[in-house]
Each structure stands twice: as C-alpha cells, then as structure tokens.
Design a protein around this nucleic acid. Structure first.
Length: 245
RNA sequence: GCCCUGUUUUAGA
C-alpha cells in the first residue's frame, strides 16, 4: 500500500489526477484498501487543478467509508481554498478542523500564512505570526520564506531584510530556496548589488545556486539593461553544469 | 523511502 500511495502521490503532484484515480481503482481490485494518505494525495491532485469541490466530495466519501480525516486532509483542502483566494473558507476549515479534534500544525499555519501574503494581507499575516508564537508554533524556514516573499512582492525590502536577519538570529538556516526569494526581491527592487552579494553568500555558505537562482539574476540584470552582466551570469550557469531551461 | 506548506520568467483583455 505505501508503494501505491507513493506513486499516487507523485502523479497527483504532477497533475495526473486521472491516472492516479486509475491506480486507486487498481488497488481496490487487488484487495488493498486505500487509506487516509491515499485519499489525501487524490484530494491534493484535485486541489492543484483547482477542483476544490471535487476534493470536498472526496472528503465526504472518506467519512462515509469510516476513515478519519487527519491534519494533512484539512491542510490540503485549506491550501486549495487559499490558492483561489478564498481565505474565509480556509479559515472556516481551520475551525472545523479543531472542532473535529484534529490539531492544526505548523504546516496549517504556513498554508494560511501563504494565503494571506499572496492576497496582500500583510497585516493579517503579521497577526498570524504573533498568534503562532502564542500557540508555541515556532515559525520555521518555510514560514519565514513565505513572509519574506510577501514583503518582497510588495516592495518592502527593509521589512523583508529585518525578517531575514531575525530568522538567522533564531538559528534558522536558509536554503537555496530562501536565498532565491530574497535575491528576487532585490532584483525587483533594482538592487543588483545586493542580489549579487547574496549570490556570493550562497556559495560561501556551501550551498549550491540552482537554475532558479541563475534565472532570477539574469532577469534582474536584463531589467536593468545590464546585458553584459546577464551574459556573465549565464556563462557562470553553464560552467556550473546547469542546463538552461 | 505512504499524504499536506515556501522561490524565477508569462503578451492581450
């Protein structure tokens, strides 16, 4: 069963939901009962395609079968609503979740945080962050990256930097993903000196810049009409053994 | 090694 779930999970992540449902049928035919993780994966696939109502129907099936929705079940649905900007529904689900005796976890918070930031509700996001501290759900790298991305998107680089340093002070270690977010923020801000500095930091800390790091920098230099530097970055990318996408 | 959260580029309307 775990093997089926793993395959169904990755199919759903790629949006091949039809195939995933086919595999689920195959499981049943072989007498393997799909468990909650199987259904969570399928719900995730539907949500990724924007079919949140389909995922909701699946939730009803889950309960009818006698399976118990867990935190991943609710998190998946909440993420689907957040992606459509339906924050009220997402928050309503958080309430349903608690009422059903399922504890929201850090991922629940991160999903809500992302929904708020993407919707431009940075004040609400800040409130959620405070509430997380109160509930002893310490923000992790993902939480911080979401908030930093939010501030970068709205051009508030000083707030983004403050959060970055606050995160470092807490001993959270950024990965290439997090660096990419901040680099992009400075690129959008036209501050290629800082972007380049951060690129250097990635390497200095023993991390590896990825294709997105390079794409971001190339785009940043092109926006500044510094095509010479953009080409140098491009060459650096090839030297690093990466293939342009 | 079963499921859920964070990053780049995207014309027109």
């Amino acid at each position: 069963r775990p093997r089926y779930n793993a395959i169904i999970g990755s199919l759903c992540r790629e949006g091949k939901v039809r195939l995933a449902f086919g595999l689920q049928n195959e499981m049943v035919e072989k007498g393997i009962r799909p468990n909650i993780s199987t259904y969570n994966a399928l719900m995730n696939g539907l949500c990724k395609l924007g079919h949140v109502e389909g995922a909701n129907e699946l939730l009803k099936d889950i309960v009818e079968i006698g399976l118990y929705p867990n935190s991943a079940t609710y998190n998946t649905l909440m993420g689907g609503h957040c992606k459509r900007g339906e924050m009220e529904k997402a928050l309503g689900l958080a309430y349903t979740m608690v009422k059903s005796g399922v504890q929201p976890n850090l991922i629940t918070c991160n999903i809500l945080m992302n929904g708020l930031c993407k919707g431009g509700k940075m004040e609400e996001a800040k409130k959620l962050l405070i509430e997380m501290w109160d509930q002893h759900k310490l923000p992790d790298l993902v939480t911080s990256t979401i908030l930093i991305h939010g501030y970068c998107t709205y051009g508030n680089m000083q707030e983004a930097l403050e959060l970055w340093y606050e995160m470092l002070r807490r001993g959270v270690v950024p990965d290439t993903f997090a660096y990419n977010v901040l680099i992009n923020g400075f690129c959008l801000d036209g501050n290629m000196r800082y972007s380049s500095k951060l690129y250097g930091q990635i390497i200095k800390t023993g991390l590896t810049p990825d294709i997105i790091t390079y794409n971001t920098l190339i785009d940043g230099f092109c926006r500044e009409s510094d095509f010479q530097e953009a080409c140098r970055i491009y060459d650096g990318m090839l030297n690093a053994g990466l293939v342009p996408d």
